[in-house]
Design a protein around this nucleic acid. Structure first.
Lengths: 223, 223
DNA sequence: TAGATTGTTAATCGATTAACAATC
DNA sequence: TAGATTGTTAATCGATTAACAATC
């Protein structure tokens, strides 16, 4: 029953699949084919079927996937029905924005604590939370059942903050710094590096004008 | 002279290479081998050599890469020495944070304008800029030489805002909404979807406990 | 049964990397 | 020249997808 490996590419597509099947759920039919679902999600039908099968999610030959049940299954797999309390370290612009951002709470990721090391930030309020000293991390994380740590500090503090979070029991880290973190087995890190994203964009733009000039290297079209 | 395709995986590694070679530039040697550089960047040496070669960047056999010149070349390729003025659409939490975020300006991406459609946001100040009405996009983008547009609106406004930016001449878009954008050839989009990042993290955590229970599907170790 | 659609095998594609001839 | 290290070929790996037998 699907007890096979799940590739990280598959995992990255899951939220996309959930969105698509929820969209199609609005229609008045009970089943959906991999073809329609894949079209809506912008992937190849075989890829979608393979992805779902690798998670033990199956449809019915000749019929398709039961929309309601499929929605339920992906939801469970993604933990969408659970709450995953979040702690943010760093009460700078990014940290405060994330803490206030409704898009997270509404998707099951309520921010339960904000930490900072700077005296002038500690004690200030952000979206109903009081910024706590970094030294509180170790006891507050377990106390608040926080499962995800967000690092929104300067890059040079990132690694030590990560260690602090891990010591407090955190297994999932979202890293907003440019630093890439060294973490033990069992801890998952995702990095969101804004300046790097912009640098990639400017590379393409740079290249586009260079190609127009005839000076540059042509780009392989993105797949 | 390297007039070959550049894969998007290569592009994504470039900022990483630049960081590494700048780190190593601090040392008192003129050259660096692909081996040292790749180790520092956390990639395979052959991959690094291939990446650089695909961009027309070469070293010297038996010697390595000239650190200073290599830094210069990657900088030029990434456009690090230029300014890429940015416009942010959406003056909510994320939009305001990005506008205020020093990490962007210091890396050559100064935010030059912020737009919003909400009456109560227009006219307010964010980090020295006055929030402008969305209708200003078409003339302000060319006026301010903005090259990168950031969409930090609600998901349902994303596509129409993208069109507005493109009509104003924008070729590079950083999209913070959950919506995936339909854009014409020649426009590059990168998406940063925070809730999806968190969902991927919670998938792994979910799965980890499920495996501990013996109930779940074992995960393929991440490469 | 006839038609539809899955689950999966086998083929394809693209990216990574080992290995090595070229050459400083 | 001997040693080092590139640039690139060829092998490997993993992921995607076409194709189809299984089956509802």
């Amino acid at each position: 029953m699907g007890d096979k490996d799940v590739s990280s590419a598959t995992v990255a597509r899951l939220p996309n699949y959930l969105r698509s099947v929820m969209d199609l759920a609005a229609e008045d039919v009970a089943n959906v084919s991999s073809d329609r679902l894949a079209n809506h999600a912008g992937v190849n039908p075989a890829t979608l079927r393979r992805d779902l099968a690798s998670l033990g999610v199956t449809g019915t030959r000749g019929v398709g996937y039961d929309i309601k049940y499929l929605t339920f299954q992906i939801s469970v797999i993604l933990g969408v029905n659970q709450e995953w309390p979040v702690a943010v370290v760093g009460a700078g612009n990014i940290g405060r924005a994330l803490t206030s951002y409704q898009g997270l709470a509404s998707r099951g990721f309520p921010v339960r604590a904000v930490f900072d090391i700077a005296e002038d930030k500690i004690g200030t309020e952000v979206s109903g939370l009081v910024v706590e000293p970094l030294s509180n991390v170790s006891h507050r994380i377990p106390e608040l059942n926080v499962t995800v740590g967000v690092i929104a500090t300067s890059a040079d503090a990132a690694q030590s903050v990560a260690q602090l979070l891990i010591d407090a029991g955190i297994q999932s880290i979202l890293n907003f710094t440019a630093d890439s973190l060294d973490v033990p087995e069992g801890v998952t890190v995702r990095r969101v590096d804004l300046a790097t994203e912009l640098q990639i964009l400017s590379f393409y733009q740079q290249r586009e004008s260079a190609v127009a000039d005839g000076t540059g290297i042509p780009l392989k079209p993105k797949p």
